[in-house]
């Protein structure tokens, strides 16, 4: 069964190029759009498996698009693309549920591999994203209120794996270095994201209850 992909990017040339690459690689491009609101609107009807999302859209912030997409299609996987230098928005997008991140300057084969892994449910990390996630866990750990018992923490092994990803080692190299399987490395990386996303959902719910919005 072919994987259904939606491309959301406000630049038409880029959109067309990416869509063509995806189609040539055997994906079914079910929709392309340049607007976040429209992406959320048509997601329900077009039912993509993977959304390739540019974080910088003219109408709404990327985080909101991700929230909207996941509300419409809880199972959808989001691979975000962005230019460099938007660290906080990348981190926010990951916490909102994006499972993959790639800089726009990535090579086409890198991009296609990332889409394939996102579709398979794997997390796609760049070294930059690993650094951001690592920093976020350290920030949570150093937060002045340890009363926040629900704050997620990394195991020693997860920290070790994330540091190696941030230093640019491939999963294969990490597996060799730590003497574990490729699959184990992948699970560790996945877990670091999962805990952060779960925590984010809990935080949002708690905030909503506190504000009387439940």
């Amino acid at each position: 069964m072919t994987v259904r992909v939606m491309v959301v990017d406000d630049h038409p040339m880029w959109r067309t190029g990416v869509a063509r690459d995806l189609a040539e690689a055997g994906y079914e491009v079910v929709a392309t759009t340049g607007e976040g609101r429209q992406a959320v609107r048509i997601a329900g009807a077009t039912r993509p498996d993977v959304v390739v999302l540019d974080l910088q859209l003219p109408d709404v912030p990327g985080v909101e698009v991700i929230h909207g997409l996941r509300a419409a299609l809880p199972e959808v996987k989001v691979l975000m693309l962005s230019a460099s230098g938007e660290q906080q928005s990348v981190l926010d997008a990951v916490k909102a549920g994006a499972t993959g991140y790639l800089v726009k300057s990535a090579a086409p084969e890198e991009f296609l591999a990332a889409v394939a892994r996102t579709a398979a449910g794997e997390a796609v990390f760049t070294p930059g994203l690993a650094g951001l996630v690592l920093g976020e866990y350290r920030r949570l750990a150093a937060a002045p209120e340890p009363a926040d018992a629900g704050a997620p923490a990394l195991t020693d092994r997860e920290t070790e794996v994330l540091r190696l990803v941030a230093k640019g080692l491939s999963y294969k190299q990490i597996a060799e270095r730590l003497g574990v399987s490729h699959r184990t490395v992948q699970n560790h990386v996945q877990n670091t994201l999962g805990k952060l996303q779960l925590h984010n959902r809990v935080e949002l719910t708690r905030y909503a209850i506190e504000q009387g919005l439940d």
């Binding site: 660290q87 930059g128 650094g131 976020e136 230093k167 640019g168």
Partner: peptide, 16 residues
């Protein structure tokens, strides 16, 4: 340190 980032240099740092 992020100012060193380029085609061949990738910089990973916390968001904060």
């Amino acid at each position: 340190v992020s100012a060193y980032a380029s085609d061949v240099v990738s910089v990973a740092a916390p968001a904060t």
